[in-house]
Simulated scan of single mutants.
Amino acid sequence: MFGTEAEVMFASHHWPRFGNERIQEVLRAQRDLYANLNSQVLHFANQGVTINEIHNVYEPPESIANNWFNRGYHGSVEHNVRAVINRYLGYWDANPATLIPLSPADSAPLYVEMMGGADAILAKGQQLFDTGQYFHAVEILNKLVYAEPDNAAAKDLLADNFEQIGYQQENPGLRNSFLAGAYELRSPLPTGTATETATPDVIQAMPTGLFLDYIAIKMDSRKAGDTEFTINIVHPDIEEEYILELSNATLTNIEGYQVETPDLTLTIDRAQLVPVMIGKATIDAQIDAGNAQAEGDRSVLTQLASLLTDFEMTFEVMPGTEGAAAVPGRYDPEAGPSGVEGNPFQVKTVNAGELPN
């Protein structure tokens, strides 16, 4: 709209551009980059090139790629071309062999057996590494590592190949992925305080409905069995109401409605729910302090609390790297976060006669 008039352009990931001629040059080249990537990926897809092949087929024209502001310093062609096919055609390549594949750990032992065992794979992998055929080496060594996660020689050689591939990547995302894989193969999972994404400020900013969705994610359906309940939640201070329902081992919520005969009605100001959300208090404590009222069967909250899982971000990505000592400073589901004793959603079981009026 303003391309012929703009004299200064501010764009993400770049410093400002000055002068209309330069601005038009950048905008036109970036327009052509994304248009070419989209249309030409679909051009190849309509000739049978699949999502598992397109990153080895598509290349942007030199006139586009030779502009430094079109280089893959933030996104990569390898990611983006597959994203285009995924958008229009989905993740599957239409080969029935890949429709319901075995998990890598289940298929890898057969590959290793058919390739003559670990020694043969290591010898070939070393030969491929020595001749710079790193991707080919990764193809067979990855099978061996999945089949034999404790094979240190296999993990070290796979890490060597990851490292060389990583060094050759212009794109930081690709480079860091390969180097992180190499690091994990050579080292146990790191100790120390892990990155926590569900921080108090993030959780506090969640609308109640989104927070209840988060609780549904934390719930392990395998533990729920045939447990069923409904809870009416009322926030008088912001005039919001929710239904929280567990059925078919699935936790859902609906904003703006109440059921006529819930198992429990929990009335709590949103402001008083926030300490519970960030782990500074429990529902039980808020009820005892008079900051919330519970009418009905409070044991359903205990049932819900027993189904929740605390996520640890220290799971392994590469096989055989798990088993490091527990990360200190992490939330202990028995002790509770931030010094709160017990699960933050845990409440004591009470009899109907003990419920407050």
Results as ranks from 00 to 15, higher is better:
Leu264Gly: 07
Ser187Ile: 05
Met114Ser: 13
Ile54Thr: 04
Asp226Phe: 08
Ser306Leu: 02
Glu62Ile: 09
Ala182Lys: 01
Gln204Met: 12
Tyr183Ala: 07
His43Trp: 14
Ile238Gln: 02
Ala11Lys: 11
Phe135Lys: 12
Ala147Asp: 01
Glu312Asp: 11
Gly116Val: 09
Gln127Lys: 13
Gly181Ala: 09
Ile23Phe: 06
Asp297Ile: 06
Arg330Asn: 07
Glu334Arg: 13
Ser107Arg: 11
Val276Ile: 15
Thr199Phe: 02
Ile165Cys: 01
Ile121Val: 13
Ser12Trp: 05
Thr4Tyr: 09
Ala147Pro: 14
Asn291Ala: 09
Ala153Glu: 14
Leu307Cys: 05
Ala120Met: 10
Leu301Cys: 05
Asn56Arg: 14
Leu179Gly: 05
Leu144Asp: 01
Met1Ser: 15
Ile54Ser: 01
Glu245Cys: 09
Gln24Thr: 09
Ala137Trp: 00
Asn161Thr: 11
His136Thr: 12
Ser39Gly: 10
Tyr331Gln: 08
His14Arg: 15
Gln127His: 11
Thr199Asn: 08
Val300Leu: 02
Val145Asn: 01
Val259Tyr: 01
Gln204Lys: 15
Ser63Glu: 12
Ile254Glu: 10
Ile243Asp: 00
Glu113Ala: 14
Gly209Ala: 07
Leu33Gln: 05
Asp284Phe: 04
Gln286Thr: 09
Gln164Val: 11
Asn86Ile: 07
Val145Gly: 04
Pro109Val: 02
Ala97His: 09
Ala194Leu: 12
Ser177Ala: 15
Tyr134Val: 07
Val49Tyr: 01
Glu148Gln: 15
Met115Pro: 12
Ala224Thr: 12
Glu245Trp: 06
Leu128Met: 08
Trp92Lys: 07
Gln126Ala: 10
Asn142Gly: 14
Val138Trp: 00
Asp263Ser: 11
Gly353Glu: 14
Pro207Tyr: 02
